[in-house]
Amino acid sequence: MAGLLSTIGKHTASEDSAFEYLVEQGLLAKERRCSKCYPAPNLSLIRRSDIADGWTWRCSLRGCRTKVSIRKDSFFSQSKLRLTTWIKLMYLWASDIPVTKVRCHLDDGECSTTTAVDAYYLIRDIYTGKLLASPVLLGGPGIVVQIDESLMRHNHKYNRGRGPLDHIWVFGMLDTSLSPGVGYMEVVDKRDAAMLLPIIQQHTRPGTIIHSDQWAAYRDPAARLPTVACHRTVNHSRHFVDPQTGAHTQAVESYWNSVKSKLKSMRGTTDGMLPGHLDEYMWRERWGSGANGWMNAQTAYNSLVRHICTMRMRRKIFYVAVYV
C-alpha cells in the first residue's frame, strides 16, 4: 500500500477488518431486528462467501430467514465498491487528492476514475449537509468581518458551459479574529442590497464590525442589520487602508486568492459544481484543520467519519423497527 494510505492500512487489510472498523466507528449497524417478524428478533450475522462484503444479516426464525445487507441504510448502501476501497477513498478525499489522481494511490483495477467521481459526489453530500446543519457564524462583539465580492472566471471543463460574458459572482465574508482567517462564501445572482444584506445578517453574530469597500449595496448596514454594530469603509480609488479608521479589505482579498488558487489547481470546473467546491473549502477550514489552523488530512478524515455518522443518526438511518 502507498505511503499516503499507510495510516489506515490495518483497517483496509481485508474486508473483515474494514467491516469491524466501520461498525466500531458507527458507520455500519452493529445489530438489527427483523422487519417481518413479531416480536422482532435480532438478526444474526452470518458469513457469506458469495458476496464481496463477506457478511450479511439473517433472521434467526426458521420460517423467515430474511436476509439484509450489512450496508442497508448506511452511507455505503448506494455503492457497490468494496468497503476497503471506500475507506481508502475517504482518506484520499480528506488528504485533498484530486479525483483524477485517486487511481495512482490504489491497486490496479480497484477503482475507475468514474467510480471515484461518484464516491466524491457522495462525500460532497456529507460536507454540504453539515454546513446546512451548522450554519456559518462569523464575528461577534468588537470583531472585524471583512466583506467583498469576487468574479469567478473559472475555466470550463471540456470547453463547455456559459461563455465569458456570463460572469459568476461570489459574495464572501472573512472573520479576521482568527489566524488563518475563516470565511463564508455564496454564489449570488445579483450584487444589490436585497441580495447581500440578508447574507450578512444570517452569517454574523451580534456586535460585529464590518469593513468593506464603498460598493453601494453595503451602504449603512449598521442601521439596517441588527447584528452589525459598526460599518467602516475604504475608498480603493484613493487608499488600500483608510488613513483615519484603518479599515481595509486586504484579508478577504487574500482569501479570494487562496480560493481561486484551489479552483485553478482543479484544472477547471463547471458552473453547477462551483457551489459544492466552495462548500468543500469552507468545510475544510472548519473541520479539516489542525491545531495550527492549517488543513490536516487526519483531522479532515476523522471529521468526515464523524459527520457521516452524525448525518446517519440525524436522518434516522439506524434501523429501528417500530410496532404498535
Rank of each mutant, 00 (worst) to 15 (best):
T7H: 15
T7V: 14
T7N: 14
T7I: 15
I8M: 10
I8C: 07
I8N: 10
I8F: 10
G9I: 09
G9W: 11
G9L: 12
K10N: 13
K10W: 08
K10P: 03
K10Y: 11
H11D: 13
H11K: 13
H11Y: 14
T12R: 02
T12H: 04
T12K: 04
T12E: 05
T12F: 06
T12Y: 08
T12A: 04
T12V: 15
A13D: 10
A13V: 15
A13Q: 10
A13T: 12
S14M: 14
S14W: 10
S14R: 12
S14G: 14
S14K: 13
E15R: 13
E15Y: 03
E15I: 08
D16G: 08
D16M: 09
D16H: 14
D16W: 01
D16I: 08
D16R: 14
S17M: 02
S17L: 06
S17V: 07
A18Y: 09
A18F: 10
A18K: 05
A18W: 04
F19M: 08
F19I: 13
F19K: 06
F19N: 05
F19H: 12
F19V: 15
E20N: 06
E20P: 00
E20T: 02
E20C: 05
E20D: 06
E20K: 08
Y21G: 07
Y21M: 14
Y21V: 06
Y21D: 08
L22F: 04
L22R: 08
L22E: 02
V23Y: 00
V23K: 13
E24N: 05
E24W: 01
E24L: 01
E24R: 09
Q25F: 00
Q25K: 14
Q25D: 02
Q25G: 00
Q25R: 14
G26I: 02
L27G: 00
L27E: 02
L27K: 00
L28T: 08
L28Y: 02
L28R: 03
L28H: 03
L28Q: 09
L28A: 10
L28S: 07
L28N: 04
A29M: 02
A29D: 13
A29Q: 11
A29T: 03
A29Y: 00
K30S: 15
K30Q: 09
K30D: 11
K30C: 07
K30P: 01
E31C: 07
E31T: 03
E31R: 12
E31V: 01
R32P: 04
R32H: 01
R32Q: 06
R32K: 03
R33P: 01
R33A: 05
R33K: 13
R33W: 04
C34Q: 02
C34V: 09
C34L: 06
C34G: 09
C34R: 04
C34D: 03
C34T: 06
C34Y: 04
C34M: 08
C34I: 06
C34P: 06
S35L: 06
S35E: 12
S35R: 14
S35Y: 10
S35I: 08
K36D: 13
K36P: 00
K36W: 07
K36G: 02
C37M: 07
C37Q: 13
C37V: 11
C37A: 11
